[in-house]
Write a protein that binds this DNA or RNA. Structure first.
Lengths: 341, 341
DNA sequence: CTGAAAGCGCTAACAC
DNA sequence: GTGTTAGCGCTTTCAG
C-alpha cells in the first residue's frame, strides 16, 4: 500500500529526483525533453505530490486557522466566507475551529494552533479564557483579530466603527420623522455592543430626541438572540407611550422583536419602524424585510487574512500593531416608515 | 528563528530524543524521575511538538476535508456543524473547501485532496465536474458523500428519505383538511429535488387530492432560491382557483413564496398554508414561523464522518458501499392552519 | 541544465 | 526503562 513518491517518478523517467522537484516547482530550468519524460512518468505512475512532506520541509503548512464560536450563526458564516475566499486567493487553505462557546474546545484548538498545525490564525471573537491569548503570544503564533476587544495591541485587528453605524441609523430615522426611538440590546458581553449602546445614548442626546429610560431595554441573561429580541419586544409593547421606532443591537434581536410586534397585531412598519444591526442575509428573508446597518463582514474577513499575511511575512511583531477600522452603511429595506410624508 | 525541537528538549533533559517521544505519546513507560526532567525541559524551552513532522512521519494528517459549495447557505452551515463537531470528537480537524459553485475552485480543491492534504473528504454536494469523481477514485482517497446523487456505489453515503418527507407533509395537510395543494420548486438539478417532486405527484394521486397542472410550479432558471420562491408565489396567486396550501421544495423557496403572499395582502396561514423542506434555522426566524420537513442535517454530517472514518480504517473499498438512509420529520410551526376546525 | 547529498522533526523498531 | 538508529518524501544547496 505504498504510495508513489517523487523518487519513483525519477526512476521511471530516468532522471534525478531533484530534477523532478525542480520541474514541478519551476525552481530551475529543465530541458523540454526531460520535461516530457517526467510528465509521462507522472501519468504512468499516477503520481501526486505529498503536500505534508513539502510542508514539513518548508516549515509551513499553507493552512490558516479560523477560530469562531459557531458556523451556523450567519454572522460568522458570512465572515468565514470572506476569510476562506481570500485565503484561497493567496493559496492558503482554511482550517475551521468552531468552539461552540465551550471552554474546553477553545483550549484544545489553541493547543493545535500552537503546535504549528497552521501558519497563523484569524480569531473572530473574544476568547472565553483570556489566558489563552498569552499562550498564543508565547508560542509566537501569527495572529490577526476581527472585532475582538483590544486586550492588547500585540496583533493587527479589524474593527467596525460602531458609533458611526448607530449614528447612521438614528439620522435616517430622524430624517424620516421619528423622534421617539427605543433601543433593544442583547447582553453587552463584547465591546462592540457596549459601544453601540453608548453611541445610541450619546446620539439621542445630541439629536435632542425624546428620551425615556424604559425605552432602553438591555437583556441580562445570555440566551438565543431571537428569543431575547422577542421578549424585549414584548416588554417594550407594555410601555406607554410607545416609541415610533426601535433600533436593535443586532439583526437577530431585531427579528425577534419584529416577531413580537407582528404576533401582537402591530404592523411593521406602519405602527412601528425597526432597524437591525449587522445586515446578515436573514434581513432580506423576513417580511417585511429588515432595514439594517451593514457590517461589511466579507470585507472584514478579507482584511483579517490580509493582516495575518503581513504578520506571517514579517515574523517580528511591531511595537504597536495596526488597526483597521471599517465603516458601516445603512441598507434600507421595508421595515421603516416615514412619519412626515 | 529556529524553533524548539524534541532534540533540544532531550538535550536539556539529558535523555534520548526517543524517550521524550515515548513520554509524549505514551508509547512506552517512562520513569517518573525522567518524566519530571522532561516536563521541566519542555517548560523551560517553551516547546510545542511539530504536528507537521508527526503527520509526515505517520503518513496521515488527522485532517478531514469538507467539500461544499457555500458556507453562508444555512443548510450547509448546519451540515458542517455536525461534521466538524463529530470530527473533533474523533480527533480530526476540519479543512473547509467551499467552491462557491465555481468549476475552477472545485478542481483546485480536488487537486489538494488527492495530494494527501487530508486523510479523507466528505463531499456534501454533487460535483459540477463529474470527471473529478474518477480522480478521487484513482488517487484512492477515502471519501464519503452526503446527499449526493449516486454516480456510483464506490463510497458510502448518507441520504434523506425524500419520499417519506413529502408524504409526511402532505398527510399532515390532509389531516387538517387541505385537499387543494400546490407544489413550488426550484430547478430540480439534484436527485433529491427530483425525488421530492415525484413523491409529491405520487402522493397527490394516492391521497386522491384535487389536482391541477398549474399548481405545480417548477422554476427553470437557476437563481437565488428566495427569489425563485417569490416569483413562483406571485405566479401561483394569479391562478384560479387558488390552492389552500402549498408545499415547497426547500425552506428558502417557501420563505420567498411567503413573502409574495404577505406582500400581496394574503394572510399566512389564514388564507393559505405553507410548508417548507429542510428545516433550517431560518424557519423559526420568520413570521409566521414556517412549518417544515426536517432534514436531520447535523446527524447527516455526523454520519458522514462516521462513514468516512470506516473507509479510512478499511482502506480497501468493498464491492458495494454502504448507504445510510435517514428519515425526515415534520416540525409543526405556525404556517399551517386547520380548515376543518 | 542535471544530479548527489544533506537534512527537516519526528516515530518506531530494536537492542541493551 | 532508555538509547540507537533508520528513515518518512521532499526541497535545496552546490558541483559539475
Amino acid at each position: 500500500m505504498k504510495s508513489v513518491t517523487m523518487r519513483d517518478v525519477a526512476q521511471e523517467a530516468e532522471v534525478a529526483q531533484s530534477t523532478v522537484s525542480h520541474f514541478l516547482n519551476g525552481t530551475a530550468p529543465v530541458a523540454i525533453e526531460t520535461q516530457k519524460k517526467i510528465i509521462q512518468a507522472i501519468r504512468k505512475l499516477n503520481y501526486y505530490p505529498n503536500v505534508t512532506a513539502r510542508n514539513f520541509k518548508q516549515r509551513k503548512t499553507n493552512i490558516i486557522g479560523l477560530l469562531i464560536p459557531d458556523i451556523t450563526n450567519m454572522f460568522y458564516a458570512e465572515l468565514a466566507k470572506g476569510v476562506i475566499e481570500t485565503a484561497k486567493e493567496k493559496n492558503y487553505n482554511l482550517l475551521l475551529y468552531a468552539t461552540d462557546y465551550q471552554r474546553r474546545l477553545e483550549k484544545d484548538y489553541i493547543e493545535l494552533i500552537v503546535s504549528k498545525q497552521v501558519d497563523g490564525v484569524v480569531v473572530g471573537y473574544n476568547l472565553i479564557d483570556e489566558k489563552l491569548w498569552d499562550k498564543l503570544k508565547e508560542a509566537r503564533v501569527p495572529v490577526s483579530t476581527i472585532d475582538v476587544s483590544p486586550v492588547n495591541d500585540f496583533w493587527p485587528s479589524v474593527f467596525l466603527n460602531n458609533e458611526e453605524g448607530i449614528q447612521q441609523g438614528l439620522s435616517y430615522l430622524v430624517k424620516i420623522g421619528h423622534r421617539q426611538i427605543a433601543y433593544l440590546s442583547e447582553p453587552p458581553y463584547a465591546l462592540a455592543l457596549v459601544e453601540r449602546q453608548r453611541a445610541f445614548l450619546r446620539s439621542v442626546r445630541s439629536l435632542k430626541l425624546d428620551f425615556r429610560e424604559n425605552w432602553i431595554l438591555v437583556e441580562k441573561k445570555q440566551r438565543k438572540r431571537v428569543e431575547i429580541g422577542f421578549s424585549l419586544g414584548e416588554k417594550l409593547m407594555s410601555e406607554r407611550p410607545l416609541p415610533t421606532a426601535v433600533m436593535c443591537s443586532s439583526d437577530l434581536v431585531a427579528v425577534g422583536a419584529m416577531k413580537a410586534f407582528l404576533s401582537a397585531g402591530l404592523k411593521v412598519p406602519e405602527d412601528i419602524s425597526i432597524i437591525g444591526f449587522d445586515d446578515i442575509l436573514l434581513c432580506s428573508y423576513v417580511h417585511p424585510s429588515l432595514t439594517s446597518i451593514k457590517q461589511p463582514k466579507y470585507d472584514m474577513g478579507k482584511i483579517g487574512i490580509e493582516l495575518l499575511e503581513e504578520v506571517i511575512a514579517n515574523r517580528e511583531p511591531r511595537e504597536k500593531e495596526k488597526r483597521v477600522v471599517v465603516n458601516p452603511s445603512l441598507v434600507k429595506r421595508q421595515s421603516c416608515r416615514a412619519l412626515n410624508d
